[in-house]
Nucleic acid binder design. Sequence first.
DNA 1: CGACAAATGTTAGTTCCTAACATTCAGGAT
DNA 2: ATCCTGAATGTTAGGAACTAACATTTGTCG
Lengths: 201, 201
Amino acid sequence: MLGTNICRVTASAQPSARTARTRERLLAAALDLFSRNGYDGTTVAQVAAAAGVTEMTFYRHFGSKEALLLEDPYDPLMVAAVGRQPVALPPIVRVVRGVRTAWEQVPIEDAAPVRERVRIAGGSPALRASMHANTRRSQEAIARQLVDDGADAVAAAVASSAVMAALMTALLLWAQGEDADLGAAITGALDVLDVGAGPKG
Amino acid sequence: MLGTNICRVTASAQPSARTARTRERLLAAALDLFSRNGYDGTTVAQVAAAAGVTEMTFYRHFGSKEALLLEDPYDPLMVAAVGRQPVALPPIVRVVRGVRTAWEQVPIEDAAPVRERVRIAGGSPALRASMHANTRRSQEAIARQLVDDGADAVAAAVASSAVMAALMTALLLWAQGEDADLGAAITGALDVLDVGAGPKG
DNA sequence: CGACAAATGTTAGTTCCTAACATTCAGGAT
DNA sequence: ATCCTGAATGTTAGGAACTAACATTTGTCG
């Protein structure tokens, strides 16, 4: 969520140069206005105007006001990392360790742009709620992986939702602070859920 | 969330009989229309009309369309139950066991009306997202309790958010099924997060 | 240049929600 | 019963996030 996508599989067919430019302008204008006037204090019309474009065009590039901030393609890295954990472990432990290993390699230089978005999102209750909706695909994919490996359906759903919530909480806390190392922040936070073994078990 | 409030401290000053009646009519009309046409397929104007009332009146009784379904006063029972768990335990375990004990005594006869609401909420992504926003107060209260007992702030926030997410997942799954025993469903689900000891440790 | 398609604009409408002001209704004092 | 007052409701107007249908521009390629 929130441009925090670890994976680099993004674009399918490359869009025209023109499309990419207006998209960039809209994004820049929105981020600027959001951080200056707040998300709720900024209207789509304002963003569109600042980008020299119509409201309608905004909606054609980003399906919604939220999407501009939260939009992130489904990230298969976490699912894969979970799948790589020993099947013998309890589901919750598998998910914690999978997600943790997937995130602890995030390069520091990727952190700065992410922090701004997460900060903005954290400032609006509506946006914070939407972050959950946004992680749903990953959550379901992880649960599916667990079930495929023989886990109970309820256990799989509960474990993946709990870990994704923890991940979000960690991200929000990290964005509020000044700590540069995103990977470390998340690794540390997820240790809370992995009671069985000490950190990095 | 969703009328699933365990605690019975509800009303402050009693509202006039008239107020209570229109409120009831609105609620009944809404639940009926929601379950027949879906939440997104029902407009506030329709609900108001079905209750023989204006849209404005709807908003005076329920602050928003979502509020009608999600509205639930802050529930101190979970916080108290968490506080009662041994301080020596890791935060995540304390929260899991606290929330679990708070819920496993819910009488079966309370389950039916809850199930309808959770079912409706589960059917709409927007509503599902809002459920998270709705649990935030409880989540923060639990985290505060943990911090008061000496836990790290990040650990407290992560643990409480993870458990609340698990609780919601369990509720949504329970509402979809036919199992009558809400308490048992939640108890079982939360065991997933309590790896340290077997069920009911 | 001319055609074709993608990108953008225009207009109109729906829905959720709010604000300001007017009206009706219920219940107590006279 | 009548009046009076405050609570509950109605009315109107409008903002903001969207959506749909249709018109227009813009870039590109033969």
